[in-house]
């Protein structure tokens, strides 16, 4: 769910105009190239990144340096990725991480996406 962004580019900065397109939970976003996924989501009004596996509480980045694991999201079908350590790339499909990852569902997903690489037994 998008709200008013908590973060925005500082006005004094001369910015590069290169952008990339990604999607978050199916919604498309245009963000500057070269920044982390976490930064991109925060400036796009994504304030809730995930729900915890323990109590489903909402969480968002806390440390931005790979320590806290609060910024976990699913990127291109791979769950629980630290979005503060990953740079945005064109066409990235990002989803909020809702609780614990689902191995079975995920395996099925990947299989339909790319049948050659996965040998899931169903």
């Amino acid at each position: 769910m998008r709200t008013d962004p908590l973060f925005q580019p500082v006005t004094s900065e001369v910015r590069s105009t290169r952008t990339v397109s990604l999607s978050f939970n199916g919604q498309s976003l245009d963000v500057p190239a070269g920044i982390s996924v976490a930064a991109a989501l925060l400036m796009s009004g994504i304030n809730r990144f995930r729900a915890t596996p323990v109590s489903e509480s909402p969480r968002a980045p806390y440390c931005m340096m790979g320590v806290c694991f609060e910024c976990l999201v699913e990127i291109d079908g791979v769950p629980n990725r630290q979005s503060c350590l990953i740079e945005v790339a064109e066409g990235m499909r990002i989803r909020s991480q809702e609780g614990a990852r689902d191995l079975i569902f995920q395996a099925g997903n990947v299989q339909t996406a790319n049948e050659q690489t996965v040998e899931v037994q169903s």
């Binding site: 629980n80 609780g99 614990a100 990852r101 689902d102 191995l103 079975i104 569902f105």
Partner: peptide, 11 residues
Amino acid sequence: QVLVSERVRPF
């Protein structure tokens, strides 16, 4: 020695 993973949904 034992390895422990992240939490995943029941499988």
